[in-house]
Design a protein around this nucleic acid. Structure first.
Lengths: 243, 243
DNA sequence: AACCTTTATAGTCACAGTGACTATAAAGGA
DNA sequence: TCCTTTATAGTCACTGTGACTATAAAGGTT
């Protein structure tokens, strides 16, 4: 009848534990990568799992997710606060953890290509994995990872999210790489340019920035993310093939 | 580090309560309506709230949402199992319920125009409200309702969800009414027909069904929902104005 | 230096989808 | 018999797109 219990005794039930799990993605070597941690305890000892952890007593799921993201990547709070982090969905099957009732609020984070995580504490035992070749993960994390990949692919179509995978300055070729990697397709370069540049607020020229030279061909112009969040019109996947 | 605690004692913490809240929408009299219940207890006594309730010990959030939907609408389990129900997002601010820590997994349900809920038990005190004129709801339910409306409006663009608001047989005019009501716009009728009929699997003609007569003009052909779930190409809102 | 390869960028063209609009068909009511 | 109302069919100009060709600017090779 409401979000809240009527005459509910907090200690009468077996309590639910509430956690967050994180699907942290990056694009590295033209492959979508995901951050995983190796479990040191039963159950699923030795298996790899999505990073995550418990909500503190006065912490929202979003706050817990950002805290875990900082811990697992070894990045500073300031750096982490600039990253894209959003709630994915909540997983609450009664037997998803064999030990007790755990409800997990899964989140998706997108980060630019970062060095291998070598922070202290929780970040030890964390590694980037090719998201398509993780093997079987602990708990229901295979499903969470699949849902997160689907969501990211879909959001690239109608949001400016792709820039979240890029460093502060990037070329249109790098942005196109993000799309091609996440979608697993090859896009026509002139057409991609035309669509990105025709969408106001998607990217803006980074005037002062020096072009990166030393590559093979003509140096590309640098851009930075614009202030738009939605894409109009959307940048649809070829063939209309969705999951 | 994982979905599950390491050496966690289930009774050591103050427990979290986990609930579901439901934003149940219907289109009635060319207005979007939402099902609300009046609170009989403090806090927020006398305020209206989204229907909802606790997860049972061995129940997933989706199962709890479908159970609550049946209880609050007074419909049979069979009827309810055919309705559209999907997870919206999870609300976990520490103080969203003043009595204790409650994490709520909000869901959105779409139903055809139903009679006023007059089931037993929880359905007493339930009423359809114009979704734009609910006044201030209990807890954080104003925000949940706003998020749910945004989600429904966005999903009409790229899914076949609009048929979930319609009875088993419907006219294209009724389907257009759904779009116009949810989006709050007026659409061109010939263009709407063309787009809907051009999308394979969106609707299919209901051949045998007798046309409804007694209206003012030419009787419209009846259709039923097709088997497609996604819309290609999407049916975009006019003006590109999103929330 | 002349040339090739590579990558970036500019432009062309036919076609599909769309918004705005007009025209016709089929019902009930005055 | 009109007239109104709603459904359905069709037209037309414009936009965005996919496929493609052309040019520019870098490094490397001989």
């Amino acid at each position: 009848m409401s979000a809240a219990p009527e005459g509910y005794d907090p200690h009468a039930f077996e309590p639910f534990a509430v956690t967050v799990d994180l699907a942290v993605f990056t694009v590295r070597d033209s492959r979508l990568h995901v951050l995983l941690v190796e479990r040191g305890e039963e159950p699923y000892k030795g298996h790899w799992a999505l990073p995550g952890g418990f909500l503190l007593p006065r912490e929202s799921a979003g706050d817990a997710a950002r805290r875990e993201l900082a811990e697992e990547t070894g990045l500073s709070d300031d750096t982490v606060s600039g990253l894209h982090l959003e709630q994915l969905r909540t997983y609450s099957e009664p037997d998803r953890d064999p030990r007790m009732r755990v409800v997990s609020v899964a989140h998706t984070a997108l980060v630019p290509d970062l060095p291998e995580p070598r922070g202290g504490g929780d970040a030890a035992g964390a590694r980037w994995w090719d998201a398509a070749r993780t093997g079987t993960l602990a708990f229901d994390h295979d499903r969470i990872l699949a849902d997160a990949r689907d969501r990211v692919g879909a959001k690239l179509e109608y949001t400016c999210l792709a820039t979240a995978f890029c460093p502060p300055h990037f070329t249109l070729g790098e942005l196109q790489q993000v799309y091609e990697t996440v979608w697993g397709v090859v896009l026509d370069r002139p057409n991609f340019r035309r669509k990105v540049l025709a969408t106001p607020g998607f990217v803006q020229p980074a005037e002062g920035a020096p072009r990166r030279t030393g590559g093979r061909g003509k140096p590309a112009a640098l851009y930075r993310a614009g202030d738009a969040t939605a894409l109009h019109p959307p940048l649809l996947r070829p063939e209309g093939r969705h999951a």
